Computed example of a mutant assay.
Amino acid sequence: MRRIMSSVRKRSWKTPSGEKRSAWIVDYRDAAGKRRAKQFARKKDADSWAVNALAEVQQGVHTPDSISTTVAKAAELWLDSVRASDREPTTIAAYEQHIRLHIVPRCGAQKLSQLTAPKVRALLDSWLADLSRPMATRVFRSFKAILTDAQARALVGQNVALAVKVPKAPRKRRQVSPPSKAEIRAILEAAAASKDLMGRAIVELVIFTGMRASEVRGLAWSAINLKNGSVRVEQRADAKGQLGPPKSASGFREIPIPSRVVSTLREWKMACPFHPLELVFPSQKGRVLSHTVMAKNHLKPILVAAGVTKRGEREDADVAKYTAHIFRHAAASLWIDQRLNPKRVQTLVGHGSIQVTFDIYGHLFEQADRGAADALAIERALFANTD
């Protein structure tokens, strides 16, 4: 068995100006048996590095600095592989932003071989300090993916980021305030009175199904069963109008629709312009309807007509009080009000876990339970101990 050795020696020399200089040199052989050397200003640092390097060589995870690449270069290679894997444009754009704004400015010039778990933890701490927690977590995931890709390319012996975990934070409920029942009724009445049949169909669909705006924009007629009264969520449209499957397995689901929505969809189907992909809500130019057009041309006029507005920057400007996404919460609140169990609500809204459902709607479940308990308490107070 070949013996792996290293030595630390002092080197002294004179500069062209005659100044005396010295440094400590670590001589060693890498896993391939090639002689390597690294220089340090202090013997303490040289000794410490030699011990770690020898252990890495023995484990087969050592990467000499001289052949290592930088984080910035590794990030470019990873991003190229992501682009080649035909990921969604919005996903690629997010990764590009992580690298350009947060990774390269912090550690782009750092060589992969010089990264350690403590250094990575310091990077993570800096992202957590300067960014929102969700964004810092996403940036760190991209960073780990870069190192994993680099390891697969043999650009570094190990991914030291795998030993670093995002510290847990107290779970906070993302409590939402959905439209009131009075507001929902006003919106439905305004939709029924509107001359915009497409807008009416969109409004009724989002209120009674809780579908995401991207899922509504990507909805095809083949996914709607008007006979049985149901709609299947099986594709979505991203920000650039490209169609694809839901982002997760839980996004695939079937949602019942009431007769009111079935009737409106039947009427809209007769008037709906042709689209080669049979989209339910195509744009006027026969393309995938953009989120902006859906909100501005179809949702806002109905909300304004219903009086569900807030004051804009200009005194004479009425702005829709809610975005398309709030109707997703409206549907969930109505299901909860009708005493659907949490697991069923999770399935209908397409959440990946029941915990997410409780984080967002837990207070609504509590209110529903408390309302039922209060009603029973009143009944007991009125009729208890009576002959």
Rank of each mutant, 00 (worst) to 15 (best):
M1D: 10
M1G: 08
I4N: 07
S6W: 12
S7F: 06
R21L: 04
I25R: 06
D30H: 11
K34E: 14
R35L: 13
K43P: 03
A46M: 05
A46Q: 03
D47E: 15
L54I: 08
E56H: 04
Q59A: 10
V71W: 00
V82K: 06
V82C: 07
R83V: 13
S85W: 05
P89I: 08
P89W: 03
I99L: 02
I99H: 07
R100D: 03
P105A: 03
A109N: 15
L115M: 10
T116A: 07
R121Q: 14
L123A: 10
L123M: 14
W127H: 04
A150G: 05
A152T: 03
V156D: 01
L162T: 11
A163T: 13
A186I: 03
A186H: 03
A186N: 08
A191L: 07
A192R: 10
G199W: 05
A201Q: 04
R217K: 01
I224Q: 06
N225S: 09
N228D: 10
G229I: 04
S230W: 01
R236Y: 06
A237E: 03
G241V: 03
G241A: 09
Q242H: 15
F252R: 00
R253Y: 06
R266V: 05
W268F: 01
W268I: 04
A271D: 06
K296D: 15
G307T: 14
R311Q: 15
R314W: 07
E315F: 07
A317I: 03
K321C: 08
I326H: 09
A331Q: 01
A332G: 01
A332Q: 01
Q338V: 12
L340A: 10
R344H: 15
Q346M: 13
Q346Y: 06
T347H: 11
L348C: 06
L348G: 01
E366C: 07
E366G: 02
D369T: 14
R370H: 10
L376Y: 11
